[in-house]
């Protein structure tokens, strides 16, 4: 089994944990605030009694002081389910060694899985390309990490990316609000992707997009006469890259801006991941940012 759990990544990320920034609906009491008030231990506020309220929640002490019926409300902490959507399309095969996008995504997925399970939350894995690949249901057991790692190891890209419809599909499948991690190079139609994300957000889920890009894709550093073989299609293009670099970079920039702005519009976290950069740095930086912006 490949070692996707890099100790330095886990060590740095563990200190920060993965906290659901927004409210999640959990089955168990955990680190996360629950929107279901009334039954838990942590008092939130009073409100006036209205007919129909359970009289067991009337604060009699307050009645004795104010002669009015008030109800005590509590906030219940719940655990959450994190859905890790991992792109296993052929375009993810770009890059060599540590910079290979798929390998990078696998390490990222493994790290997130370990962290989430470690804080007693559940993790579900959904591998996709043009359709769904391996899918593991949510589980909070430590043994589930092992299963996920096995699944990741067995992933072999076969098809091109068509993630938009799949996100819609997943959004309609998951009823309970949770945390969605989308780990992909997002080489699909931006509008389609954003449509899926919007659907997820409509379902009340928190969405984090890890946009995996190779440094070559970001800088386009090629020279000379190059024949570019498309990884997801049967086509090639021969050109002098230095001649088209400016327009390539402009097109890429626009695409990234569209995607990032779309994510921000939908209140999704957008994390651009450069596979040339150590994962620990990228992940730590994101989690720190996430902590700073945590909704209390």
């Amino acid at each position: 089994m490949a070692n996707y759990l890099h100790p330095d990544v886990i060590a740095k990320a563990q200190a920060l944990g993965v906290k659901a920034r927004t409210l999640v609906e959990g089955l168990r009491v955990g680190d996360h605030r629950s929107p279901y008030r009334g039954f838990s231990v942590e008092f939130v506020q009073h409100r006036e009694y209205v007919p129909g309220d359970d009289i067991r929640h009337i604060d009699w002490k307050s009645y004795g002081r104010s002669d009015r019926y008030t109800i005590k409300q509590y906030e219940q902490e719940t655990n959450f389910t994190a859905h890790l959507m991992v792109d296993a399309s052929r375009s993810m095969l770009y890059g060599e060694g540590d910079t290979n996008k798929l390998e990078y995504a696998k390490v990222l997925t493994a790290a997130l899985t370990y962290l989430i399970i470690l804080q007693r939350d559940s993790v579900a894995l959904d591998v996709f390309d043009a359709g769904w690949g391996e899918r593991l249901p949510a589980s909070g057991q430590m043994g589930h990490v092992h299963k996920i790692l096995e699944t990741l190891e067995s992933v072999q890209p076969k098809d091109k990316n068509a993630m938009g419809p799949l996100i819609h599909d997943l959004a309609s499948q998951v009823r309970r609000r949770g945390l969605f991690f989308l780990i992909s190079d997002c080489f699909d139609d931006v509008e389609s992707i954003l449509g899926g994300l919007q659907h997820l957000r409509f379902g009340g889920h928190e969405v984090i997009v890890f946009h995996i890009l190779h440094p070559d894709e970001m800088d386009f550093p090629f020279n000379g006469m190059v024949k570019f073989d498309a990884m997801e299609e049967r086509m090639h293009l021969m050109t002098r890259p230095q001649l088209v670099r400016p327009t390539y970079l402009r097109a890429l920039k626009k695409y990234l801006e569209d995607l990032q702005q779309g994510c921000e519009r939908n209140r999704c976290d957008y994390v651009q991941v450069n596979t040339g950069r150590p994962l620990a740095e990228t992940l730590t930086e994101y989690l720190a940012r996430r902590l700073r912006t945590r909704v209390v």
């Binding site: 996008k101 080489f187 570019f228 050109t239």
Partner: peptide, 28 residues
């Protein structure tokens, strides 16, 4: 000569490359 001496690169972000070539090919 240089046209016959090229290297092959498998490429993922073909979409942007195509766009840029389409935009610039005539001018180039």
């Amino acid at each position: 000569f240089f046209r016959s001496r090229y290297r092959t690169v498998p490429w993922a972000a073909m979409k942007f490359l195509l766009t840029s070539v389409e935009q610039t090919s005539r001018r180039l």
